[in-house]
Design a protein around this nucleic acid. Structure first.
Lengths: 92, 92
DNA sequence: TTAACATATCGAAAAGTTTCGATATGTTAA
DNA sequence: TTAACATATCGAAACTTTTCGATATGTTAA
């Protein structure tokens, strides 16, 4: 359990610790959801790089993806931010 | 201000996102404080590598260092964990 | 003052991450 | 069915991080 939370924190903080990915998270928080194409517009890197950053966010379980035909709609997994918040509160 | 918090979050999550550094933080939370030598015992890497990890934690301002003669005593900066917790709460 | 100890810094090797363009796969609209 | 579009994957270059041993610096005790 202590083991599990460490792994969770390591994985999620790693996903957050990049300026482009943090920007995606903050924008998702505001907008609620985005398509991958909008992410590309937002961060201004190549399509493959955007795909890579989105994949890391999904891998970390901070972001969820839902297929809508040929689009992939992404949104925050707010439960996991709650979990992170609680973890840091314990350290504070 | 929004700018500043992003920078803070990026820097601190980067510091946390390493299993050795997370272990140091969790141990500091329990014990309150540690000397660098104890950190070395805890994580079992070379002295120079421990020094490097501790330096990253101090740089991030999640950890504070106080010189006590030839020892350096480190402890958590709990205010900054509070700040992190609040940031993630906003995203949740 | 010098020996012993705690910590920091340096330089280099190994490992990991970011980025890209090219190409593959999956989906829809014509 | 095919063209067009959205996203994923691949392979490689550039960059960054982790780790070490060696050495430097700062502090105390003898």
């Amino acid at each position: 359990m202590q083991e599990e939370i460490s792994h969770f924190v390591e994985k999620t903080t790693n996903a957050i610790a990049d300026s482009y990915r943090l920007k995606i998270l903050l924008t998702l928080s505001q907008k609620g959801e985005m398509y991958c194409g909008e992410v590309q517009q937002l961060i201004g890197l190549s399509q493959s790089t955007c795909s890579h950053h989105v994949a890391i966010l999904i891998e970390s379980e901070l972001v969820e993806s839902k297929k809508e035909g040929k689009f992939h709609k992404i949104s925050l997994n707010r439960e996991n931010f709650k979990k992170l918040s609680a973890f840091f509160q314990e350290l504070s």
